[in-house]
Design a protein around this nucleic acid. Sequence first.
DNA 1: TCCTTAATAGGAATAATTACTACTTAGGAT
DNA 2: ATCCTAAGTAGTAATTATTCCTATTAAGGA
Lengths: 151, 151
Amino acid sequence: MVIGKNIERTEKMVEHFREVCRESGLKVTPQRVEIYRALASTKMHPDVEMVRESLNASMPNLSTDTIYRTLSMFEEFGLVTRIEAIGNRARYDADTSRHPHFFCTECGCVKDFHCDEMETIAAPRSAKKLGRVDSVHIHVRGVCNECLAKE
Amino acid sequence: MVIGKNIERTEKMVEHFREVCRESGLKVTPQRVEIYRALASTKMHPDVEMVRESLNASMPNLSTDTIYRTLSMFEEFGLVTRIEAIGNRARYDADTSRHPHFFCTECGCVKDFHCDEMETIAAPRSAKKLGRVDSVHIHVRGVCNECLAKE
DNA sequence: TCCTTAATAGGAATAATTACTACTTAGGAT
DNA sequence: ATCCTAAGTAGTAATTATTCCTATTAAGGA
């Protein structure tokens, strides 16, 4: 996983992350910072294993459990969004703004795209009748260009 | 899981299922028919365990592996849709028409609702640039009325 | 600097899914 | 109707993802 693009934006996100931790009484540990930074610095919507790999050099003793706990906690505090992609691994996105995803059914990659209509569409009355609606999620499934090229 | 509502509609779906099997050269085994019928006769979007429970009386020896294999196969042939709900169990829907789902983040239930806009919104150019788009999926996350009542 | 309590590492346990193999059966051929 | 064969199934083992547990560590306030 390539880390390090858009360093400025990433560091702004990390600073915001520190603030949220302080405000919420969460300890700012090196593990948490590095896990958050790993997410914030990539567009790959990594799963736990990808986070572990990307931090293996800098934190070889980082435990799986810590990554799981930390990511769940981040989600709880609205710092990341959990993506229910195809397959069995949960993936996470540090970009919590509402936006649709493209899921490749061949390789499992997840990509962002933008669409005003999808980002603003509201839950209808028929949905609100079922309970309290907290968020709207849109994704498309298909085959990414890389996989199409291989065929 | 309550099975048996809307028997007529269910049996029409089962008949269609048989046709698809015949056309595709798939054997119509009792296991497949019952698994399909279990899905077609409920709106609960069951997971593997729910299917197993609902068929436990009629097919006590039905193996987990068969349910997994069969549901994957159904999805491959467009007979069911796999729903990536919250949590770690895959759920399935025999209603393959495009419609949005409500996911309760408390109890994990999945409910259908309808919304013309959500059912017709098309993938934008920005998505098509990423690859071939096969389907569009929309869901909302929130807390269902039953869970709200408990609080 | 000390203290308290939250957080972590490492490993064990659990849960979900897939793989394997000997046996069975659906459905076409006879 | 019976036979044949490949596809399908049951039962179990293996794998993979996730969570739990506990002794140790360290963040951050006093």
